[in-house]
Computed example of a mutant assay.
Amino acid sequence: MSPSALKPSTRLRRRLLLGLASVALASPLALQAQTASQLIRIGAPDFGVAGKPSPGGGLLAIVHHNKWLEEEFAKDGVKIEWNFFRGAGPAVAEALAAKQLDLVSLGDLASVLHKSRGLPTRFLLPAGRDSNSYLATAPGVEIKSWADLKGKKVAVLKGTAYQRPFDNLLASAGLGEKDLKLINMDWPGSKAAVVAGQVDATFGGADLFILKDKGVSIPLSTKGRGPGFTISSGLLATEDFVQNQPQLTQRVVRQLVRAAHWASQESNREALIKLYSDNSGSPQAVFRNDLEGENLNARYSPLVDEDFIANYQGVLDDGLKLGLVRKGFEVRNWFEPRFVQQALKELKLEQQWKARDAQGKVK
């Protein structure tokens, strides 16, 4: 019997069966489109020592150490690729511009600087708030105030988040970069240089405490100086990754919020310090000194609130004023808070953190 001789009801049933078969064939293709990225490439500055690449201390370090992303995506065959850069923020941004990364963790100035230069990123969530910086001085060098840096040879890795508080500290003492012999040097190089007395001082993170047993002193820090002197960081994604892989983006953010919840518990303080130490190779004293007196729930809040947005607006404003950033942009439009909001609902953590206003007060 020819197809044209089939009764209308028979033809209809055949069309329905063919349609269902088409859907069955198309469904794996649709699923493949959602998980087309079989590799999620993550980049971060390398804060590890002794041959242990690490993002240092922050939410990404927790996820990295516990392999939560690997566990999350194992069933889908999606691999996680970690890339750690000794060149810090500038090197991460360079790889991002070359489309070699999907997600990056960057300090505030580096992320603002490269956004202003047109890098197509979306800011997903804070990875750490209001961390402090420290000045390490070479053996025999006496520095008691920021004003004492005048004429001194000081190493600072330019283009990283540390440059902004350093320049602000100089300004508070009536100085500028031209009043110093400023040397642009990466972290491993600057540590070796200050120990050897090749520079008078270097400015950086809490990892400088590992140099104290080599005769290096830590006379000054940004602790207690308030906004403009601390550093925040965040997880950013390329616009392509967010647009093409929203489900993968959501799952990554959920694991970061999970890490934020764990880190925010005061009962986990010692476990957190140990994790950072084990993951980075730095002594526990490095992180214990940095977290001393800190409110963990505030420091690790993943909320994209008015306080955090105002912080980054301040970074942009200071960058423009100090000549570190040449072009402004709409800071608020950069953020994608929907992923954090969804993660908070999924993990039932809506009440864990309190949003703060632009003045830092709890709403």
Rank of each mutant, 00 (worst) to 15 (best):
G197C: 03
A136I: 10
L20H: 05
F241Y: 08
S280T: 15
Q247M: 11
E72K: 01
L12E: 06
F123C: 05
L119R: 08
A201T: 00
G87H: 02
S27G: 14
L60N: 09
N168P: 06
T222Y: 09
L180D: 07
L17G: 10
G56A: 08
L109F: 09
K178L: 03
L236S: 11
E70S: 04
V340T: 07
A298Y: 10
A271I: 02
P28I: 06
K75Y: 11
K79I: 01
D278E: 14
E81P: 04
K153L: 08
V199R: 00
R225S: 11
K144Q: 15
D307V: 02
S233C: 02
W262V: 04
K212P: 04
N168H: 04
D108P: 12
V194N: 03
K178V: 05
A358I: 05
I62N: 13
Q34K: 13
I210Y: 02
S111A: 15
A88C: 01
A136E: 05
G43Y: 08
F73D: 07
S2W: 07
V112S: 08
A173R: 03
A271N: 13
K52E: 01
N83R: 15
K158N: 07
P283V: 04
M1L: 00
T35R: 08
N244L: 14
L39T: 12
I210H: 08
L169W: 02
E71Y: 00
G328R: 04
Q198N: 14
E306Y: 08
Q245R: 11
F329E: 11
E71D: 11
N333M: 10
S27D: 00
R117T: 13
F287W: 12
V49H: 09
W353F: 15
K212A: 13
F73W: 07
V331T: 05
V242R: 00
K158Y: 11
H65S: 06
K361E: 14
L69I: 01
V216A: 06
G323I: 01
R129S: 09
L96Y: 02
L170S: 11
N297F: 00
A298E: 15
L175G: 05
R117N: 10
E72Q: 06
N168A: 12
A50D: 12
V78W: 09
F229W: 04
D290S: 12
A155L: 01
N132E: 15
K191A: 15
